[in-house]
């Protein structure tokens, strides 16, 4: 039987899509609308930093950022592959897309560890 790696990429894509659809709107509404428009009092910088340093918050942010990157990578790969019909560049496209998501994941991990 031919083995395929697609289930792996697809599971990251699916998990990223689910997480992003559920939590990014919440994050955007709180930080992008509610606080700037004064619906909520702006929390002190130290308090937000302390919250972000909590192991659960770090894990949450890491998964949200990393899996969203992989979600983008998978979708963008097929956008280039099918949409722009760059079939002959399949390997290069995959390396750029998933490689980009991996770089983003490492950067997110590095930033969160050193927070």
């Amino acid at each position: 039987m031919k083995t395929t790696i697609e289930p792996f990429w697809w599971s990251l894509f699916g998990a990223g899509g689910t997480l992003a659809a559920l939590f990014i709107p919440i994050t955007l509404i709180i930080n992008g609308l509610a606080i700037p428009l004064g619906w909520l009092d702006a929390p002190a910088y130290e308090n937000v930093l302390q919250l972000a340093r909590h192991p659960l918050a770090r894990t949450y942010l890491f998964l949200l950022i990393s899996l969203s990157f992989y979600h983008w990578a998978h979708r963008f790969r097929f956008t280039l592959y099918d949409g722009l019909q760059l079939k002959h560049l399949n390997l290069l496209i995959a390396v750029i897309c998933y490689g980009g998501a991996t770089v983003g994941t490492i950067a997110a991990g590095y930033t969160l560890i050193n927070l």
Partner: peptide
């Protein structure tokens, strides 16, 4: 059936 379908030409080509 999985041998035919769990491949790049099978289900994984579907977007």
């Amino acid at each position: 059936r999985n041998a035919i379908l769990n491949t790049d030409e099978g289900i994984w080509q579907c977007t």
